[in-house]
Amino acid sequence: MLQEKLKKSFRRKFNNPELSYLHKKTLRSTVLKKAKTCNKCPYCESLNGIVKKSPTGILKIIHDKYRNKKPTDPIVLNVLKDFHEAKELNKEVAAMINSGLIIELTPLEVLNLFRRIPDEDIPLLGMNVKACRPEDLILTRLPVPPLCIRPSVISDIKAGTNEDDLTMKQSEILLINDVIGRHIASGGKSELLQEDWDYLQLHVALYINTQKTWSRIGTTTQGQAGTIPR
């Protein structure tokens, strides 16, 4: 989102070997502030809106691309026209998208965007391209600890043992993956697949950090527990 001249200036500062951690952090904040003020891509002239957490969905990120445009703007009217035409041809679209002007950024879309960032721009994010890239921050595979980390526990209530919480959560993730695969194979509705996908994202988040995720979603999960058929 930055002009090439400005990016070169920031690159020189980031490449300074004597740059301290605090100075690097401040410099990174400056880069982000400059990028946020850019409302249009300097290369393809595509509109750039606000990227934020969705107020309506759990663990969702949206791109409010046309936030700075008036409802009567020709660009907005054309987008809404295309959206309504798509709704007429496919009724499932209406149930999945609240507004034609709000774009939901799925993990796969974000992953592909991160992969397209050139290596020369990585230092502007405060990252070392030799050590990592932005796409490394998105998990595509889950680490599974060995059995010694998640042993079975003898039950005090009934005879036998209970599986560790991590093992139970892994079983649920595998179950949801299997359900998604069966729904895709059988040509399931898009709305149903979207619910399965959201449910999978939720359980992966719970697997990584139960406490923080529960504090964010409250009791919403209890209402979603019946969306995955057993």
Score class of each variant (00 low, 15 high):
residue 66 Y to Q: 08
residue 66 Y to L: 14
residue 67 R to E: 12
residue 68 N to Y: 11
residue 68 N to G: 12
residue 69 K to I: 07
residue 69 K to C: 09
residue 70 K to T: 07
residue 70 K to H: 08
residue 71 P to A: 08
residue 72 T to D: 14
residue 73 D to N: 15
residue 73 D to E: 09
residue 73 D to C: 08
residue 73 D to W: 02
residue 74 P to L: 14
residue 74 P to W: 14
residue 75 I to D: 04
residue 75 I to M: 14
residue 75 I to P: 02
residue 76 V to T: 15
residue 76 V to F: 08
residue 77 L to R: 15
residue 77 L to T: 11
residue 78 N to L: 15
residue 78 N to G: 08
residue 78 N to A: 15
residue 78 N to R: 15
residue 79 V to Y: 05
residue 79 V to D: 03
residue 80 L to F: 05
residue 80 L to Q: 15
residue 80 L to H: 06
residue 81 K to D: 10
residue 81 K to P: 00
residue 81 K to G: 00
residue 82 D to G: 00
residue 82 D to W: 01
residue 82 D to K: 10
residue 83 F to D: 01
residue 83 F to M: 01
residue 83 F to C: 01
residue 83 F to N: 00
residue 84 H to M: 08
residue 84 H to G: 00
residue 84 H to I: 07
residue 84 H to A: 00
residue 85 E to S: 03
residue 85 E to Y: 05
residue 85 E to M: 02
residue 85 E to W: 02
residue 86 A to S: 08
residue 86 A to N: 05
residue 86 A to P: 03
residue 87 K to N: 13
residue 88 E to Q: 10
residue 88 E to N: 15
residue 89 L to V: 07
residue 90 N to Y: 02
residue 91 K to F: 03
residue 91 K to V: 04
residue 91 K to Q: 07
residue 92 E to S: 13
residue 92 E to L: 00
residue 93 V to A: 09
residue 93 V to R: 05
residue 93 V to G: 05
residue 93 V to L: 12
residue 94 A to S: 06
residue 94 A to T: 03
residue 94 A to H: 02
residue 95 A to Q: 12
residue 95 A to L: 14
residue 95 A to W: 07
residue 95 A to M: 10
residue 95 A to C: 11
residue 96 M to F: 00
residue 96 M to G: 03
residue 97 I to P: 00
residue 97 I to A: 02
residue 97 I to C: 05
residue 98 N to P: 08
residue 98 N to L: 07
residue 98 N to S: 13
residue 98 N to I: 04
residue 99 S to E: 12
residue 100 G to Q: 03
residue 100 G to S: 04
residue 100 G to W: 01
residue 100 G to C: 04
residue 100 G to Y: 03
residue 101 L to T: 11
residue 101 L to F: 03
residue 101 L to M: 06
residue 102 I to C: 05
residue 102 I to A: 04
residue 102 I to F: 00
residue 103 I to Q: 07
residue 103 I to T: 09
residue 103 I to C: 05
residue 103 I to P: 02
residue 104 E to G: 08
residue 104 E to R: 10
residue 104 E to T: 09
residue 104 E to Y: 09
residue 105 L to W: 07
residue 105 L to N: 04
residue 105 L to Y: 06
residue 106 T to S: 07
residue 106 T to F: 08
residue 107 P to V: 07
residue 107 P to M: 11
residue 107 P to G: 12
residue 107 P to L: 04
residue 108 L to R: 12
residue 108 L to Q: 09
residue 109 E to P: 02
residue 109 E to V: 00
residue 110 V to R: 12
residue 110 V to P: 06
residue 110 V to H: 05
residue 110 V to D: 03
